[in-house]
């Protein structure tokens, strides 16, 4: 069953220097209970897609297309109805856990507020529920630490708090926007395992937005590769890693410095990520692509389905040799 379906989503921003096209015609279908990675570099539009889904675009931003969550169209929904969905069905956690919490309020207050306001629970019941969730998120001594202020927690611990907060209303979809980027390597793994655990225990669908293909490999089922606000490739993680069809995916995987290999040189992608205000007529990756041909600059490649579970948008896709 498809929980979230995004069709032809575009996000534009009106700035003093003209219109910025952050997302250009993105299609996504995310099934209930799945764990999907949305992978892209800076400027790929990955975060803006999530903000558009959540109705949290900056004031000068506008979303066009369609986003349906469990059959309800979210774009253009009035603020009240959107708030109801946001508070009970979709939750989001952010890259920097420090800025996502009010530094002047105790964790207990910030966690129970959600429950007392949205669910009408008593303070005592809300507190018990919050402590229970912190426990589940492996925050040690949850009952004492809930009375602390955000700055008394380390980054990794705070991210656990935020995940617990996101789960308070038992959302069906959890969007994690670069949840481990601000964390240390050894803590990163802990948080990723925790997210996997959340999915298993609560049946929550998880969308992981990240620039790090490394963490995708171990923790997600499906992945979507974005570039220049467009979907380059999507499909099951294992199959894409084994045999990427899009030259961009291939380059991205190759560029990761690996401990388990001895390369003389790192394989880089020439050029720079696309500036979002210059939208090329053809494929956004054409300027940096090793397999580019004349047509790529001119014509935007359509999304093809080389296999039932895979999508690729390329004029000269790599053949599926594992």
């Amino acid at each position: 069953m498809t929980l979230l379906r995004v069709r032809d989503l575009s996000v534009t921003f009106e700035t003093g220097d003209g219109t910025v096209n952050a997302v250009n015609g993105v299609d996504l279908a995310i099934g209930a209970g799945q764990s999907v990675a949305v992978v892209g570099e800076s400027g790929s539009g990955k975060s803006q897609i999530m903000f558009a889904i959540m109705g949290l675009l900056a004031r000068n931003g506008a979303a066009a297309g369609s986003v349906t969550f469990d059959g309800t169209e979210l774009l253009g929904l009035d603020e009240g109805a959107l708030n109801r969905i946001r508070s009970s069905q979709i939750a989001m956690i952010f890259q920097n856990p420090m800025t996502a919490l009010n530094p002047y309020m105790r964790i207990s207050h910030q966690m129970t507020e959600v429950l007392t306001l949205h669910k009408g629970m008593s303070r005592r019941a809300a507190l018990a529920e919050a402590i229970g969730l912190l426990d589940a998120m492996e925050v040690p001594e949850a009952a004492t630490r809930i009375g602390m202020y955000p700055h008394e927690f380390s980054g990794g611990m705070l991210q656990r708090v935020l995940i617990a907060m996101a789960l308070l209303c038992r959302p069906r979809l959890l969007i994690a926007d670069e949840p481990t980027t601000a964390l240390d390597a050894t803590v990163r793994g802990q948080i990723m395992r925790l997210l996997a655990d959340v999915r298993a225990r609560f049946g929550t669908t998880v969308i992981l937005v990240t620039h790090d293909v490394g963490i995708v490999a171990g923790h997600c089922d499906e992945m979507v590769v974005l570039y220049g606000g467009r979907v380059m490739e999507s499909g099951p993680v294992a199959r894409i890693f084994a045999a990427p069809h899009h030259p961009y995916t291939r380059s991205l995987l190759d560029a990761v410095p690996r401990l388990d290999r001895d390369d003389e040189r790192l394989r880089s992608i020439p050029g720079d990520p696309l500036g979002t205000n210059l939208l090329p007529a053809g494929c956004p990756f054409a300027a940096r692509c090793p397999r580019v041909e004349e047509r790529c600059h001119r014509e935007r490649p359509a999304s093809e389905r080389p296999a039932p579970d895979r999508v690729v948008a390329c004029h000269r896709p790599l053949e599926g040799v594992a």
């Binding site: 390597a185 793994g189 395992r193 490999a217 993680v237 990761v256 388990d260």
Partner: peptide, 19 residues
């Protein structure tokens, strides 16, 4: 803890994280 962009390798060693 260093991620390896290879699902087969990654899944095989998930338990070895540092607490």
């Amino acid at each position: 803890a260093a991620p390896v962009p290879d699902p087969a390798v990654e899944r095989g060693r998930q338990a070895t994280g540092l607490g």
